[in-house]
């Protein structure tokens, strides 16, 4: 019976396959700050993902014999400086021509978890809230007295 539910239209998409089995929970348990890896989140539109060199700075020694870390270090060594291709988990389709920005939300004290769920305890990052939903943006903007002018998001 459970199978019948799969594919139901308002279900969130499953997390996309990632090139390395990266686990947030392992890193958060080791008290690594979100901003250490998502450096832009306080000042930029994009949260950003860490450069391979940033992962490698820890993983030359940390868990160096873990199979996923070995795989990662091999890709890093043989990648000719090409960045890791992480797949997007949260996507606002470009066809909506919307410009989401992290910095105003972090400045206003909106918690990451409000929009992303408790990523820190996930082994695989996945969508908990449907972020590609204008109604959801506007509900909160009305509640928190943020701008609901179309051009704030659409330009």
């Amino acid at each position: 019976m459970a199978l019948v539910m799969v594919g139901c239209s308002d279900e969130l998409p499953p997390p996309p396959p990632q090139p390395i089995a990266f686990s947030h929970s392992v890193h958060i348990e080791n008290e690594i700050e979100c901003t250490r890896c998502h450096e832009g989140v306080e000042t930029q539109a994009q949260a950003g993902l860490p450069a391979m060199a940033a992962c490698a700075s820890c993983h030359r020694r940390q868990a160096a014999d873990h199979p996923e870390v070995v795989k990662f270090m091999e890709q890093y060594a043989n990648g000719n400086g090409e960045p890791m291709v992480w797949r997007k988990v949260h996507v606002i389709p470009t066809s909506a021509m919307v410009h989401f920005k992290h910095s105003p939300h972090v400045r206003a004290g909106v918690d990451c978890a409000t929009c992303h769920g408790d990523v820190g305890s996930m082994t695989v990052a996945q969508q908990v809230v449907d972020v590609a939903n204008m109604g959801w943006c506007l509900d909160c903007h009305r509640e928190q007295d943020a701008s609901i002018d179309c051009m704030t998001c659409h330009h």
Binding site: A96, M151, H154
Partner: peptide
């Protein structure tokens, strides 16, 4: 439409 800051906005999606 005209925004509160006096711009003549164009909502492409619309």
């Amino acid at each position: 439409y005209r925004t509160p800051e006096g711009l003549n906005a164009m909502v492409y999606a619309r």
